[in-house]
Amino acid sequence: MSDEPAGTPAAEQQAKPSRPPRRKRVVLADSRAPVTVLRTVLELEEQTSWAEEVVRGFIRTQFWTAVRLALVVISTLGALPLVFFFAPGLSEVSVVGVALPWLLLGIVPFPLLFGLAYWYNVLAERQERDFVDMVEK
């Protein structure tokens, strides 16, 4: 900055044709950081014994939710080969002109998988929300 009073029309006119000063962004604080740092969040970051316990509990909840849904898949889809092995008569059954095993293997698994995924998404997000509420309360 020069000593001349800034903002006089003449000074501006002169500055225009030459290269304008490069605009710099001045960052006083990282905008990504939360606006109010909560004490509990700090505690989580600092790994106090309370925080460790809470986090461990949360991880466990998420884990068992996932395991439960995985068990649904294992007990349904995973059992199908055994069912077909021990009950070969199923192939004789036909539903709307298609053999039952083909329906059970070609169509049914896909809505089942998507449904479970959808359900898990709802559950996991709800548990995350509850955890955040608990931390921020």
């Binding site: 996932a66 849904l69 898949v73 896909f110 998988l113």
Partner: peptide
């Protein structure tokens, strides 16, 4: 035949495992 139907099932179900864990 029918045994090959496990390929598409597995290819899809792999994503459920990926999502869960």
């Amino acid at each position: 035949g029918a045994d090959a139907l496990w390929y598409p099932i597995g290819f899809t179900a792999g994503y459920l495992a990926l999502m869960l864990f």
